[in-house]
Design a protein around this nucleic acid. Structure first.
Lengths: 182, 182
DNA sequence: GTCTATACAAGGATAGAC
DNA sequence: GTCTATCCTTGTATAGAC
């Protein structure tokens, strides 16, 4: 694996585990086995690393979308999305939702990269709206997507706050029933 | 107002605006008009300031609870709680929920004060469960509280991500209808 | 209790040899 | 492209006079 990739991977993991602000370039260098000075050949500033982390997450969602596209129905795809989140409940209870916690941190910090955080939560929500559309809900698709994404993000935050994956699991179970009943 | 109070107020505001990690003791000293060295007479370490910030927020919720207790019915109290949140949607769209964003940040940072963040989101949820109980929902009160708190926290996060208060306002409107229909 | 000066460490970033 | 040494700034914290 190329150095740049290793650096990005280390940055993504460290930012998720410790938060982006607390993650130092030296941390990233150490974890990826790249000498400190060499990091600056790939990233001029720490802000450039934030951008790379965000791009990584955007790519992750694109992959997930492609994976879910193989499923036969929009309902099945939505349920699978919820299952994916609930499947990570253990880690989410410790560190929060990878996308949600990063978005919140960068936006509060007012980093230059902050504006680029928008798609982290908006892209999944758009995709959800599409799925609801295919289910025949012509006008209120955005409201339904908002409702689903809110509950998942909120459930993740509450699970983290209580350090208890069950909170997210319970929200997930409720949401799946709700989706199936629509 | 005493110096300690001024320090705490400045710390609360700065941590909300910039995040706790990015807020320096010098920031707090400047904003409260207390010389840097003098801060350490009131707080031995920055971690002690985190504790004070958390205590402040806990007190805020206790006040709100007392205020809402004057309302005639549990339903009215829950609706008023939602209204309170929606009323802050403008600021929440910029900086997130004061309680939720702080909890997330401290928990991820793994600060010593992190454990004390639990009541920030748990106390309101407990209170919600009580209200649902008074409405006659004997067994599923925790599930209902989880649902309400999830949606509010998620709505806050999404509003912040999109820098758009409307997302929270819409969730709030839906939740009020839902409460009234229970 | 208050405040100035400062110690000390850490972090982002660069210089410059290879 | 790579890597060591180091600059410079900032941030927490303390010393010690008042």
């Amino acid at each position: 694996m190329g150095k740049r990739e290793r650096l990005v991977e280390a940055a993504v993991n460290l930012a998720y585990r410790q938060g982006y602000t607390r993650t130092t370039i030296a941390d990233i260098a150490r974890e990826s086995g790249v000498p400190l000075g060499n990091v600056y050949y790939y990233f001029k500033t720490k802000d450039d690393i934030a951008t790379a982390i965000l791009d990584h997450h955007k790519g992750q969602f694109e992959s997930l979308k492609a994976e879910l596209a193989a499923l036969p129905s929009p309902k099945a795809r939505l349920v699978a999305f919820v299952n994916k989140t609930v499947g990570n409940a253990g880690e989410i209870a410790l560190r929060g939702c990878p996308a949600g916690s990063l978005s919140a941190e960068l936006l509060k910090a007012g980093d230059k990269a902050a504006v680029e955080a928008f798609p982290l939560l908006a892209a999944p929500m758009e995709w959800m709206a599409e799925q609801f559309g295919e289910m025949g809900h012509s006008d209120d698709v955005e409201a339904l997507a908002l409702q689903l994404q809110s509950s998942l993000q909120g459930g993740s935050l509450l699970a983290q706050n209580a350090r208890n994956p069950e909170l997210l699991a319970r929200e997930g179970a409720r949401l799946k029933m709700w989706i199936n009943g629509l």
